[in-house]
Amino acid sequence: MVIISHPEIETSMVQNFLKASVAPLEDITWHHLDAIDTLDVAAEQALLREHERIVFQFPLYWYAAPASLKAWLDTVLTGQFAFNGRQPLAGKTLGIVVSTGTAAKHFQAGGSEQVTLSEILRPYELVARKLGMVYLPPLTIHQLGYWQETDKQHLVIDYQRYLTQAQFNFDQKLAWFETMLIKKAAEATSPKAQQRITLLSEQLSDKRSELTDLNWQVQLIREEEGEG
């Protein structure tokens, strides 16, 4: 589930781009907080229980999320819900998709902002920890308007993976592509296209196994040579 906090979503290039990126995916709940007049606490809590991955998505305003996310956190995460000893969200993952109008290079030690995004987003990491959730490395989007076309294409897929990939290592990345290829093969319009995409998926799977096998062999020899 993507929980978006953005007071001017209709005119936001980033938000429109991200929404279009997930259009082909099923099972994504798009939850725009600023469109809600009065929060129904029980309904919001039920949404949280229903979803395994919760993503806060917002533009960075004065080193924080816009007001609607803070209001949502304060209203929905009641003591009764979060601290009654049951930890209803334990084991789920919490991700952050944050956009800024400032280049990435400024958010690092020695950079002009004198702070990293990991530091700025620390409160959400702490919320995740308090709730027993796994905190994902944030997906950051800096100055999308200046991006090259190929980089934008990569963002489409990075974003899809951020919302749906089980774990973030290389093997799981390849597994994600395989799953998507199988899905694309099933949706293919001609038997020939279906066959081509299926072959592609099988070939990718074979190469992934080859790498796993090589990793194992290298690891074995390293251990024999005392490198562990």
């Binding site: 279009a20 990126s21 259009a23 082909p24 190929t150 934008k152 294409q153 990569h154 489409v156 897929i157 990075d158 592509f177 998507m180 290829l181 694309k184 990718l204």
Partner: peptide, 12 residues
Amino acid sequence: TTYEEQAFYTAL
């Protein structure tokens, strides 16, 4: 045939 599909194969 779609932008998303093109992006998928670029990333793949």
